[in-house]
Amino acid sequence: MQKVFGRPEALADVPTHYCPGCTHGIIHRLIAEVIDELGVRERTVGISPVGCAVLAYDYFNCDFVEASHGRAPAVATGIKRASPGSVVFTYQGDGDLASIGAGEIVHAASRGEKITVIFVNNAIYGMTGGQMAPTSLPGQKTTTSPRGRDPETAGHPVRVCELLSSLSGVGYIARVSVTSPANVAKARRALKKAFEVQLEGKGFSLVEFLSTCPTNWGMTPIEALKWVDDKMAVYYPLGDYTRVPEVG
């Protein structure tokens, strides 16, 4: 009998701690599939963030480093510069990347570091219990915005792809979601492209995933997927944000 579906080699055979309905699991699997497809597992070094994915190093079957909060792009820079033959990716949440690590991500992108950033945006601080994130939507209720996020006092959500797309060091940047089989297929293509850009030495690459947090959003997994489509994807439109380089 022909085997048509199995665990990617780059994914460790262990249970994860993620909540039911969270899409970290799908995203992990897609990354592992792409690493396998490109045949780079034995050259790959991942960097896990501080946040829900802090234990990602247990879930992938490749070398892994744990970074301090927000600094994954700086750690990735150090690894890639010291070991240019390695394939280096960071896996970061919205608090990690767009708040405390805003400086590191902007400068890694602007330098055109040959790394791939997986940015998982679920509009909330999951691990610490549902506080407001830099990407929480206007009106979104969190434990630190109990009346809903008021942009007047709490500021506006950060659109990371739009922000970084103006930087010349960016080789590829796209926003995807995994709310349907079609979206999962598109996300996989974007991930593969991002790693290919790194392998070809064409600069910095980033894929932003709109992700769910049923636990802290107070929704069922199905409601959460619908909220991504109906609310998040409106504020954060899906698509390829890579800017065509200017000539001259």
């Binding site: 700086a74 750690v75 820079t77 510069r81 010291a82």
Partner: peptide, 25 residues
């Protein structure tokens, strides 16, 4: 490798990364 970091916070975390890769840094 010489790299001027965007801050001491980032620079010292680049040191962390290069040390992870086994470099004298």
């Amino acid at each position: 490798v010489f790299l001027q970091a965007e801050s001491e916070v980032a620079g010292s975390n680049m040191v962390y990364g290069a040390a992870c890769a086994g470099a004298r840094v």
